[in-house]
Design a binder for these strands. Sequence first.
DNA 1: GGTCAATTTCCGCCATATGGAATTTTGATT
DNA 2: AATCAAAATTCCATATGGCGGAAATTGACC
Lengths: 260, 260
Amino acid sequence: MWETALTNPPNGAARRLAFLLKLIGDGPPRFALGDLAARAGLPQSTVHRNLQALIEFGLVERSGSQSYRIGRELQRIASRLLQRFDLVRAAQPLLAELVGNWHETAVLCTYSPIERRVVIAESVCTPHPLRFAIENGMEIGLVWGSLGRAVLAFLPPGEIELVLRDPSVGPLTGRPRMPRDDLLEELDAIREQGFSRYYEPQMEIAGIAAPVFGPEGEVLGCVGVTMPSSRYRNHLEDDLVDAVCAAGRHLSGLAAVSPA
Amino acid sequence: MWETALTNPPNGAARRLAFLLKLIGDGPPRFALGDLAARAGLPQSTVHRNLQALIEFGLVERSGSQSYRIGRELQRIASRLLQRFDLVRAAQPLLAELVGNWHETAVLCTYSPIERRVVIAESVCTPHPLRFAIENGMEIGLVWGSLGRAVLAFLPPGEIELVLRDPSVGPLTGRPRMPRDDLLEELDAIREQGFSRYYEPQMEIAGIAAPVFGPEGEVLGCVGVTMPSSRYRNHLEDDLVDAVCAAGRHLSGLAAVSPA
DNA sequence: GGTCAATTTCCGCCATATGGAATTTTGATT
DNA sequence: AATCAAAATTCCATATGGCGGAAATTGACC
């Protein structure tokens, strides 16, 4: 699962350190030099040298003779950062409330601006037996569905452009890609209304999602509710929209205040 | 508060990046280039160049024209790390329970192996009006008190040695430093018993603390209960010791399992 | 004790980090 | 608008320190 190096490693000591640190943070809690070198696509001696630097600052520690682990300093910094504001923790009661009121799966997604990916950070499942298999860490396409578009619409124009040009964001469902102009119009509507809705009876999935903003207006992710489209029409659409939007605004508000 | 550069900045791009990243993580959520350069004790052009590397990987982002902020990638990694195991969060119910049962202030401390410092990560105050002013982030001396010694005793021998040699860990209270051999003996006893007790009637503070270990036996910090020594004798000592030790073992157990 | 795989050290080459100075951008003030 | 001071950014000559292949070492597993 954590084997191949997808991207070419950067050059320069500083860039490589940042690159390795992210690889380590996204990887398993313990790892061997060889594994990391393979994942990074770098020679072992290079990775070894950089690990020495990370160890010197406590960001990585040795764990036994042939493995490394995430260091206590990194844990400390992570803890400090999330003490200011932890989106996932803040969202949990809101997701629970959405499920409690509407009995449909509620999801929090976070956006990674570097990878330009949206992933599921937390979810609370509907009690209905018919539901989608949702798992934390699952990637959500930026151009399909309510969750992806709730994020995409509020990215800076340049970033939207890059996403649309990216050939890798293709039609996952085998469907032809929506014409570019139609999508741009759709995104305008989402910006205007402040939320995204995805409901086409012939598609099996429907949902409503609202963006979550950070203190400077940057998109942190989105909250939303998803369901099989067969159940969508059972709900009072306006009330559901209001509930989701309120959750999004609430989280944005918390994010704006917390970082002091 | 965040102004002076205490330590000399390291040389080499990799080391400097790690150094800066820690400075950023420990600093305010937004900062200016000049501030960071001053805190780092490095020329602005150097810091600027390194910030470019961090920005490229999303660990830092621009926030307006004259300030930077912590990046969403760093937040993401922090969130990922703490999702595996968040010591502070795991400790909260235990601290509450200790206070509920004993009505004395319960504290969680974390240990930073690089700075060789113990700081208060979380605390729940006693309902008694007579109590110590305790604040998150406060530093605890390693050689004085139950909390510091509960950590110190379980560090690797070499690390203990370094702490004892460190002239900066002096007698904070103005008291003469305990003779080295007496302290080593005390630490032996703490290791033997699995907890530390600090109660000398002539001192004003008393407490009991137990270490918290990570998955490989490294010391993460300690949990403890502190009180004015005047109240210490009101308690059933053995039961209090058992409660604190149970909390320490419980947290160590959680830490051992979670990181899979 | 032997074997193999993984880590760590070594070293000559040269890419790139370095920081002072120059230039540009910003935003405060009138 | 125009002006100015302060902050950020770019530039550049220098040489430090990063680079990775290969050799030496260590540790794991039989």
